[in-house]
């Protein structure tokens, strides 16, 4: 079952953020709340799935010399589509993700998967790869966002989980907290990997 193994690898073994260390900018910037993290993860997954399928389908007609500009055009088109769709139907989320929606274009995960996978595999496996990588990306975002939102605001997905008396650790939501949270998470993953 190649389809499922391609799908599963992105979630754990080759997790784009924790293992491959790609796409750091949106990970750190929009993980201030779980809602933003989920929104970003889904937007990026949508672009990843569409661009992976299209790039896999057009691999026969793309001359190798101009493949990178072609990939960029395909990715940028889907990013603009999701940008417009979110502005129309998910305005709040669109506002809070702001600049980082157009910046999905330069998210290394998407161009990286186009070059490393979709340009060499058929559409079905490319779809599996995109779903897996997208899920891995979203999962990592939600994990980081969960820690930051609970510590920094006392809530999870806007639901209060810590008592009102808890004085929020504001730094967790600010930029330094993003770096430090991800740093410790990666150290934790290194420990788990070391045990195996």
């Amino acid at each position: 079952m190649r389809f499922f193994s391609e799908l599963a690898k992105g979630i754990v073994k080759d997790n784009p953020i924790f293992v491959l260390v790609l796409g750091m900018c949106p990970t750190l910037a929009v993980s201030t709340s779980v809602k933003n993290g989920l929104g970003m993860g889904m937007a990026a997954t949508f672009v990843l799935i569409c661009s992976n399928i299209i790039i896999s389908l057009i691999k026969g007609v793309t001359p190798p010399k101009i493949r990178i500009p072609v990939y960029i055009v395909v990715i940028a088109a889907f990013v603009t589509i999701i940008d417009m769709a979110m502005a129309a139907y998910a305005a709040e989320l669109h506002k809070s993700l702001g600049l980082f929606i157009p910046l999905i274009v330069v998210n290394c995960i998407i161009l990286g998967r186009a070059e490393a996978f979709a340009s060499k595999n058929n559409a079905l496996n490319s779809l599996a790869d995109a779903v897996g990588m997208g899920a891995g990306f979203t999962l990592a975002l939600v994990v980081v966002a969960t820690i930051r939102e609970i510590l920094g605001n006392g809530t999870w997905l806007d639901i209060r989980v810590l008592p009102q008396a808890y004085d929020p650790m504001l730094i967790a939501i600010l930029a330094p907290g993003a770096f430090i949270t991800l740093g410790f998470l990666m150290a934790l993953i290194n420990i788990i990997k070391g045990r195996k």
């Binding site: 730094i171 600010l174 930029a175 330094p176 770096f179």
Partner: peptide
């Protein structure tokens, strides 16, 4: 360094401390 901290984790934590230092420029009181 502890083995698990080597490489990316310590670089990220360093970046966090640097970001904290740069927050001083804005006059933030955290």
């Amino acid at each position: 360094l502890p083995k698990s901290m080597k490489g990316m984790p310590i670089a990220l934590i360093l970046a966090g401390i640097m970001a904290l230092a740069f927050y001083g420029w804005m006059g933030f009181k955290i």
